[in-house]
Design a protein around this nucleic acid. Structure first.
Length: 425
DNA sequence: TCTGGGGTCCTAGGACCC
DNA sequence: TCTGGGGTCCTAGGACCC
């Protein structure tokens, strides 16, 4: 059976989302900033043309923003998540099988579409997605996932392609690989680029000429799979159902440096609650929790302190109350006064389906009650907005909150301003 | 002053067991 | 004190992705 994959990628996704609701910014340089307005994580083509690099610290371009040369937005993940769902739902109409690979990318199974005029079909997809969502996309089509990545990159870069590139015949495929620098190949990061260049591999085509045992020796089985994919042998299937996550992490830098335990505890409680919500969304519970705290490692002036604490819970859980309780205990054991803290985080592992948790005979928690409280809480928050209802430990102190001075409104989802608080456990 | 956050997979090496 | 091999499990660390 011959395989054929499409890779659909939203162009400059976050920047495009912002522009959908401010069409006046079309044709102008737009950037989206990371949490805390730290650095640039998305750029419109015009911003790229100005030479703004991915990861540029915001303060280095602030002057341009202040004279309106560049339009900057704080990241608004609620908006991007919702726009993403719209794009993916539209794509799903064009193929029976789709793998949502990331917030802005999907693989499409086009295995049954060999007979179609693929070029024409891709244009249709691209146009409909734009018409229905306002998001411009690029499409690459090829016999394997790794080659679809190559095709997609070409679709975006080449002036001739204008956003669609179909690579099915061997000549086009090897030309495309020759035109792809080795560091632009999917799965080849900084370390492997150095290694491969040392061995005379400068582009995707050179890589396909290396023999299997050399690749296996230096890049393990992952590298071997990749090189086979680039030669046209499909090794990576389409994964339609995202498997449940094996680790869940919520961590963020604070808007300002914090020194007080109470402030850091409040932030940590909120991250624990966020993790609990992610667990409930995928129908799982977690048994092991790690809490960490860090000072600012960029600062040469500050005393540095990093520590973490991992605890195993008596029974796997996804309750806000319980996870906040243990997160506070863990934090208390590693918090030391006298430091200016920058960041904390909560990591959950040993994740199990919620209907298969091992109960403990000595368990004192009323799990049924916790379950129904969480269900009610999720319902209220879905209706009245994020954190309309929360555990008291999560508090009201804004000092740890993210800096996001340039956030756009959540145009597509509802938010409420009414806070209600309960406290239990 | 100001530098993101959240994941996956693989491997090597140590501890431990028979 | 020296003499072995083979298996499993766990952890830390490294590589990558968006």
């Amino acid at each position: 059976m011959t395989t054929l994959f499409g890779l659909c990628d939203c162009n400059n996704f976050y920047a495009s989302c912002e522009r959908v609701f401010q069409p006046g910014l079309n044709g102008k340089p737009v950037v989206v900033l990371s949490n805390n307005d730290g650095c640039v994580i998305a750029r419109s083509n015009e911003a790229k043309a100005l030479g703004i690099q991915m990861g540029t610290p915001y303060f280095q371009i602030r002057d341009l923003v202040e004279i309106d040369e560049v339009h900057a937005f704080s990241s608004n993940y609620v908006l991007y998540g919702d726009m993403s769902s719209r794009v993916m739902a539209t794509l799903a109409m064009f193929t029976p099988n789709i793998e949502v690979y990331s917030i802005d990318e999907s693989f499409l199974d086009l295995g049954n579409f060999y007979k179609k005029d693929l070029h024409q079909y891709c244009w249709e997809i691209k146009n409909i997605v734009y018409q229905w969502t306002g998001i411009p996309v690029s499409l690459g089509v090829a016999p394997t996932k790794a080659l679809a990545k190559v095709a997609n990159r070409l679709a975006k870069k080449s002036a001739k392609a204008k956003g669609v590139s179909v690579l099915t015949d061997p000549y086009h495929l090897s030309e495309a690989l020759k035109a792809t620098s080795i560091e632009d190949v999917w799965g080849v990061g900084r370390q492997y680029t150095k290694l491969l260049r040392r061995h005379g591999v400068n582009n995707g085509y050179d890589f396909t000429q290396k023999n299997d045992s050399w690749v296996k020796k230096h890049m393990a089985v992952v590298g071997l799979r990749l090189v086979k994919e680039l030669r046209g042998e499909s090794c990576l299937e389409l994964d339609e159902l995202a498997p449940p996550k094996k680790g869940i992490c919520t961590s963020r830098g604070f808007g300002e440096r914090l020194t007080e335990y109470s402030q850091i505890q409040e932030a940590t409680a909120n991250y624990a609650a966020k993790c609990a919500k992610k667990l409930r969304q995928q129908g799982s519970c977690a048994r092991v929790m790690t809490v960490f705290i860090q000072t600012n490692y960029f600062s040469e002036r500050d005393l540095q302190y990093n520590n973490s604490r991992t605890i195993t819970l008596p029974v796997a859980t996804n309750s806000d109350m319980e996870l906040i309780h243990y997160a506070s205990l863990a934090l208390k054991s590693i918090y030391r006064p006298g430091y200016r803290y920058k960041k904390t985080g909560v990591i959950l592992t040993e994740i199990v389906p919620e209907d298969r948790i091992q109960l403990d005979l000595l368990d004192k928690v009323n799990r049924e009650k916790h379950g129904s409280i969480m269900e009610t809480l999720d319902r209220l928050n879905a209706r009245y907005g994020r954190n309309a209802v929360k555990v008291a430990t999560q508090g009201f102190d804004p000092s740890w909150q993210l800096k996001c001075e340039r956030r756009s409104p959540c145009y597509t989802t509802r938010l409420s301003e009414i806070p209600t608080v309960y406290n239990t456990l």
